[in-house]
Design a protein around this nucleic acid. Structure first.
Length: 427
RNA sequence: GGAGAGGUCGCAUAGUUGGUCUAGUGCGCUCGCCUGGAAAGCGGGUAGGGUGUAACAGCCCUCGAGGGUUCGAAUCCCUCCCUCUCCGCCA
């Protein structure tokens, strides 16, 4: 959520941001918000004055009742009318504030000045790489689906039987490989990158979704357990960022860095027919997610660190990748700046997004009310929140299987992973 | 799932026949006095949001959350959330 003060003081900046995001059509919301804001102030003023009167006179009535001197009937009669006016004003005010809140929640985050201009994914800028590693693939490559099937380590058909399309099953060495990847990544981030491990709930309430910005905008992409009012998390970002929702953080504790494994659930409504093969788009996948809470002035340095933490995994596994900076038209509404890490798929002959590393600045912190007091006594400030996948195993698995395949259809396990798999070859 | 108890300003507590509660007290923290220095003692301060102001002040809201009754609610009523105890079921 944007600070209403930014809208008040720099409405033109907000409108410029909407244009950079290819959302110029939303510009009218800014003026609407300003108008509502003015009436709100005026109404608050009137309501507060009436409340002050009521409080003062109520004390007079109390005095009269206590001392038994005189009658309070006339005052009570007057206050009855005042109270009615207050109720009416408060009700109007509540309605108006709901509208303002919805408008404000609907506005995307301000963009960092370094975010490239552009309309679509075509306009994203290469930031790092491509980083290549030598693999001998001087034979016709097989795609991950066929490899998984022929080796008996992935079963999409049975997954479809027991749950539906897009729920892969890992079997035997495939299951072990998946677990090895997760453990390897968690160990790397906790032992070498300074993160504290968190194992979060996979079901959250609506307030948590709202806090990180998945609600209400992406409501249709989240699995909902109606009976209990719970939602399956689309990413560990949701429970982990919400760990500190509504808290005043100890400034000495900043920056806070968490890493969490979670299964991730996404309905992917409306995206059928696009990159749906095998692991390219699934409803449930595994991801290790890094989340940081920082002081505002430290967040862009932290963004680069998270990026390099994620890169370290790919470097250790020797998987080719590149990093791109998302342009204004492609970046998500919550983020002020975002890098995508893409891994190379030899069979698809293209890069696949395996990680998204974002700085939300105070956008999520304001929604979820996560603050700290800079020097212990001044006004509280919102922290900056960031996160980055490190990484999602589904796309990583695609790239790993395809890169490490042999001419006779086996998979060589990357050296760094062998302590975790306990074997060095599948097939 | 059933029965009961409870959620108060960092912590602990007072406050439940509605009105000196604009929430008292203790601890903690902090500032000052005192001291050669410290302890003790004494005195002051000790949340967040809104509005307002040049900045203060002032005013409004918040006693788990949200409604309701009332001129007036920490206090009465309703709904929900959470914690604890007991019972049942259970990985």
């Amino acid at each position: 959520m944007l600070d209403i003060n930014i809208v008040r003081q720099n409405p033109d900046d907000v409108i410029a941001m909407l244009h950079r995001r290819q959302m110029g059509g939303e510009a009218g919301k800014v003026k609407e918000l300003l108008d509502l804001d003015r009436s709100r102030k005026e109404m608050v003023q009137r309501a507060d004055d009436l409340k002050a009167t009521r409080n003062r006179v109520s004390r007079e009535i109390a005095d009269i009742k206590r001392t038994g001197q005189g009658s309070a009937d006339e005052l009570i009669r007057q206050m009855k009318s005042v109270s009615d006016q207050i109720s009416e004003l408060d009700a109007d005010l509540a309605k108006l504030e709901t509208v303002m809140e919805e408008l404000l929640l609907g506005l995307p985050n301000m963009l960092h000045h370094s975010v490239p201009e552009g309309r679509t994914a075509e306009d994203n800028m290469l930031y790092k790489g491509p980083v290549e590693f030598t693999h001998d693939l001087d034979f016709p490559v097989t795609n991950h689906l066929e490899l998984g099937k022929s080796l008996g380590i992935l079963d999409f058909e049975r997954g479809a039987k027991i749950s539906g399309a897009g729920f892969p099953v890992y079997i035997g060495k495939g299951a072990r490989l998946e677990r090895a990847l997760i453990n390897f990544m968690l160990d790397m981030h906790t032992e070498h990158h300074g993160y504290t491990e968190v194992f979060p709930p996979f079901l959250v309430n609506q307030e948590s979704l709202r806090g990180t910005g998945q609600w209400p905008k992406f409501a249709d992409q989240v699995y909902h357990i109606c009976e209990d009012g719970l939602y399956a998390i689309p990413t560990a970002e949701v429970p982990v960022t919400n760990l500190h929702r509504g808290e005043m953080l100890d400034p000495a504790a900043l920056p806070i860095a968490y890493v969490a494994y979670s299964a991730c659930f996404r309905r992917e409504a409306g995206s059928y027919g696009k990159d749906t093969r095998g692991f390219l788009r699934v409803h449930q996948f595994n991801k290790v997610e890094m989340v940081r809470f920082t002081r505002p002035e430290a967040s862009y340095e932290a963004l680069e660190e998270i990026l390099s933490n994620a890169e370290a995994i790919l470097r250790a596994l020797k998987i080719p990748y590149r990093v791109i900076t998302l342009c204004g038209g492609d970046i998500s509404a919550n983020a002020a700046k975002c890098y995508d890490i893409e891994v190379w798929s030899p069979a698809e002959n293209k890069y696949l997004e395996a990680s998204s590393v974002s700085n939300f600045e105070d956008y999520q912190a304001r929604r979820s009310n996560i603050r700290f007091k800079p020097d212990g006594k001044s006004k509280p400030e919102f922290v900056h929140t960031l996160n980055g996948s490190g990484l999602a195993t589904s796309r990583l698995m695609v790239s790993l299987l395809e890169h490490y395949q042999t001419a006779d259809g086996k998979i060589v396990i990357p050296e760094a992973l062998r302590p975790y798999t306990g074997f060095d070859l599948i097939g």
